[in-house]
Design a protein around this nucleic acid. Structure first.
Length: 288
DNA sequence: ACCCAGGCGGGCG
DNA sequence: CGCCCGCATGGG
């Protein structure tokens, strides 16, 4: 248990970084009052709390952290070291992107734990934000280890989820995705070391993660982007597909493969950030 | 009541 | 391959 703070350089919109459908949107608790924004979230090692006041991010931790590892967790999670002006130069290719960047200036792609990200995005398929959130929190409360004296839980490990039956997972709101979660937990404890994927490039790591039942092209790209630091990953969901077709193809239907190609040519090396701004802007505008 | 949700795997042509 | 379909469940 301890606390510290750091000064954020460059634009940082912590609220939209959390609310924009990334893993923290599915399990962090947060509140904003006046000029400050506060959140807390479970990790595999502890619970982090943070409050942003202007440029100062104050944070505290419980569980298996020390001042160094807690700082690493915060800097990594919110990609504090990202050079936002440089990123914006790469993705601000047109009026729609300019508008999205203007609306959510400082929104970061977050970098999360691989298992946490896998679990969250398996649950996301053919589901809605509110229900995903409910399911993830239920899984944390049901299977996570409690932190003594805090009433808080750790994010449950694959081993802990593995102990659950499919029926039990269904009861906790996973629906038809329960069998995928079960398989993911089995596979990630017996066949696949998620940490090892950090050493692979985007193509190989994506191929490996897609061996999990319930992880297809889109979910795999979310895991590549939100966990493995692969900024060339470009998850294409219904919103991103629709907004690309509307803005760049005059409403004409395009194949997923064609849209991947388009993104890689338009925002090379920074597709992931482009996707996050496209997604959140389109969704907020309820563009259909 | 009815429709939809940050897709996916399986089955078919 | 590419396309099409069903899918648990609860919120709007």
């Amino acid at each position: 248990m301890g606390r510290d703070s750091l000064i954020i350089k460059g634009p940082f919109d912590i609220r939209n970084s959390i609310e924009s459908g990334q893993p923290l949107a599915f399990h962090a608790e947060y509140a904003h009052s006046g000029k400050s924004f506060a959140l807390s979230y479970a990790t595999s090692r502890g619970v982090m709390k943070a409050t942003l006041k202007g440029k100062r991010l104050e944070y505290s931790w419980q569980g298996d952290y020390n001042p160094g590892s807690a700082k690493e967790e915060i800097e990594r999670r919110f990609r504090i070291k990202d050079n936002m002006p440089s990123i914006y130069r790469k993705i601000c290719t047109d009026e729609f992107m300019r508008s999205a960047i203007s609306a959510y200036n400082g929104m970061r792609v977050t970098q999360n734990d691989p298992w946490e990200t896998t679990l969250c995005f398996i649950l996301s398929q053919f589901n809605n934000m509110k229900r995903i959130r409910g399911s993830v929190r239920m899984l944390i409360n049901t299977y996570g280890t409690g932190i003594e004296g805090s009433g808080k839980k750790l994010f449950p490990s694959a081993e802990q989820i593995k102990g659950a039956s499919i029926e039990e997972l269904m009861r906790h709101g996973a629906g038809f995705r329960a069998k995928y979660i079960k398989h993911a937990a089995d596979f990630c404890t017996e066949n696949l070391d998620l940490q090892s994927l950090y050493r692979k490039d985007y193509e190989d790591a994506k191929e490996a993660i897609m061996e999990i039942d319930g992880v297809g092209d889109k979910v795999a790209d979310c895991i590549m982007l939100f966990a493995y630091n692969k900024m060339e990953a470009f998850p294409i969901d219904t919103w991103v597909k629709r907004v690309l077709e509307t803005v760049y193809f005059n409403g004409k239907k395009k194949k997923i493969r064609e849209l991947h190609q388009f993104a890689s040519e338009r925002w090379p090396g920074m597709e992931g950030y482009a996707q996050q701004y496209l997604f959140w802007h389109a969704r907020s505008m309820k563009l259909r």
